[in-house]
């Protein structure tokens, strides 16, 4: 074996070692690497009064805002299988709406609701112009408030969406 080949093999062996060490570490700590827990996670292991981040979609038809005094909001966060009622006092981010992903920092209360001290909006990976969103909503192909993903982007420029795009702008 030449010196170069020996160095190459050494490098690959070291890479394998570092890689598997990293993989094992990440696997062992994966519970701590999540930024938020879902309503199902909360149902499975109750965190008590410990502060956690709760993430999920704002369930359609559950948002109640009251602007009397401090702005407060009540809504339910769902992940499709479980739901948690959340109360929050403070300003909500611009993107907050029904069907939007949110991450709320707070703690469970004795009455089973989640009292949030901070609410962040979680954006999804879809980017679409206003006209497309309007057209999809009007044609009934997509309802953002339901939390369902929009149809694939490749279908957005079909003739069905174009007439509204023309009149809309």
């Amino acid at each position: 074996m030449t010196r170069k080949k020996r160095r190459l093999v050494l490098l690959l062996v070291c890479g394998l070692g570092v890689g598997s060490a990293a993989a094992l570490t990440l696997f062992a700590f994966s519970d701590n690497l999540v930024f938020f827990v879902t309503p199902s996670d909360l149902a499975k292991n109750n965190p008590g009064t410990r502060s956690v981040r709760l993430g999920g979609l704002v369930e359609q038809g559950t948002l109640v805002r009251s602007t009397a005094g401090d702005p407060t909001a009540r809504f339910a966060v769902t992940d499709g299988t479980a739901r948690v009622k959340v109360t929050y006092r403070g300003l909500l981010p611009d993107l907050f709406r029904e069907g939007q992903g949110v991450v709320a920092l707070g703690a469970m209360q004795p009455d089973g609701t989640f009292k949030a001290s901070e609410v962040l909006a979680k954006h999804d990976e879809n980017y679409m112009p206003k006209e497309v969103a309007e057209a999809l909503k009007k044609s009934g192909q997509w309802n953002p408030a339901s939390g369902a993903a929009p149809p694939p982007a490749s279908t957005w420029n079909t003739p069905a969406n174009n007439p509204t795009a023309k009149t809309g702008s």
Binding site: V34, G55, D124, E125
Partner: peptide, 19 residues
């Protein structure tokens, strides 16, 4: 893992989810 950052909009497989 659950992150606040959204997943990729463009990938090698699958169509992009961006107009």
């Amino acid at each position: 893992w659950n992150t606040l950052h959204q997943p990729a909009s463009i990938g090698l497989t699958g169509s992009p989810s961006i107009a």
